[in-house]
């Protein structure tokens, strides 16, 4: 009797334990075995969740509310989203400009990264290092892009104006940065100037790892020129780098804001260089309409991630 009572609970416990899904039990055991891994991972993961993952979730939730930081958020449903597309004309200008920037700067800067990496790669090591420095330097030079403010300055001391006046092409200095016609293209130009970043370096590295024997094999298989070599051998061998570079360039091309604010001012003349991010900053840090700003941020998030995923799918087909 006694014995049975003692054994009873333990048998129940066993039963309970075996009722735990075996997959979960295995996971718990695994987790315990890897506690060192979790300890090493913890500091980064906590901060990453707190400052990257949580904010995305918060933005999505706040985007359905009206929130001014002081009062408790008030649920408004889809109102912020309908307002964006139906009532806010400036937002539509921002969308147009952002897609123009992303549509031009994205592909063009990607192409530039690749073409320059490809050309630089054929140079002798010393020249290669120097050219790499030249191309990469703008993207790491801090806020040096303000030099373009002097280059396109609206008086005769601006370099472009000075040059054009000196040649007699124009009679009056052009106020480039306050002119709707020019300002968007100037921001675009400067953005391209800044765009040879990590993606460019990844391509240089990728080109250096292409197996040289493949070229010999290709020549035997009837590859006739540089272009065929590029498409059938080089590009497929560096596909992982191509995909990484694409992510870097696409994300940056949708986030144009600092250059626009710095060169064209805020707000730019007739919103000519207004982008989704500057619109977001307007509502987020000036008007404190956090609900609406979060709805804009959520849209931007969807557009950025969406286009990245589409491009990744396309790049998988390179050289097939």
């Amino acid at each position: 009797m006694d014995r049975a009572e003692i054994e009873g609970p333990s048998r129940q416990e066993q039963a309970a334990r075996s009722m735990l899904p075996s997959a979960l039990r295995w996971r718990l055991l695994e987790a315990k075995k890897h506690r060192h891994s979790y300890v090493l991972l913890a500091p980064y993961t906590i901060l990453f969740l707190l400052f990257t993952v949580l904010p995305v979730l918060i933005a999505i939730v706040i985007s359905f509310t009206s929130f001014n930081l002081l009062e408790f958020p008030k649920w408004v449903g889809w109102h912020n989203y309908t307002r964006m597309f139906l009532e806010d004309e400036v937002f539509l200008i921002a969308v147009k400009n952002t897609f123009l920037f992303a549509g031009i700067v994205g592909p063009l800067s990607y192409l530039m990264c690749f073409v320059f990496a490809w050309l630089v790669n054929e140079l002798k090591p010393r020249t290669r290092a120097l050219m790499t420095l030249f191309f990469y330097a703008p993207s790491i030079s801090g806020n040096v892009f303000f030099i373009w403010q002097i280059i396109f300055s609206g008086d005769r001391y601006g370099y472009v104006n000075g040059f054009l006046l000196d040649l007699g092409i124009i009679q009056q200095p052009i106020i480039f940065l306050k002119n709707e016609q020019y300002v968007l293209w100037i921001v675009l130009l400067v953005q391209l100037w800044l765009s040879l970043g990590v993606g460019f370096l990844a391509f240089i590295a990728g080109l250096q790892t292409v197996d040289r024997t493949l070229f010999e094999a290709g020549a035997v298989d009837g590859i006739r020129n540089r272009w065929q070599e590029l498409w059938f051998i080089t590009l497929p061998s560096m596909r992982p780098q191509l995909m990484f570079g694409a992510v870097m360039q696409i994300t940056a091309s949708f986030a144009v804001a600092d250059v626009s604010t710095q060169l064209a001012g805020f707000p730019s003349v007739n919103y000519a260089a207004h982008t989704i991010v500057t619109h977001l900053e307007d509502y987020g840090s000036i008007r404190f309409e956090m609900g609406y700003a979060s709805a804009i941020a959520t849209m931007l998030f969807i557009v950025m991630v969406g286009s990245n995923i589409v491009v990744q799918k396309l790049l998988r087909k390179v050289g097939d």
């Binding site: 987790a31 891994s37 707190l50 904010p55 918060i58 992510v247 994300t251």
Partner: peptide, 30 residues
């Protein structure tokens, strides 16, 4: 290889696909 590792890494890769500008406002709140 341990439970959760792959998931975490794929979230990190996903986070490369959007600019930190997206999270500026909630970050201010945090």
């Amino acid at each position: 290889r341990f439970p959760g590792g792959r998931l975490l890494f794929s979230i990190v890769v996903l986070s490369l696909m959007f600019s930190p500008k997206v999270t500026n406002i909630p970050n201010y709140v945090i």
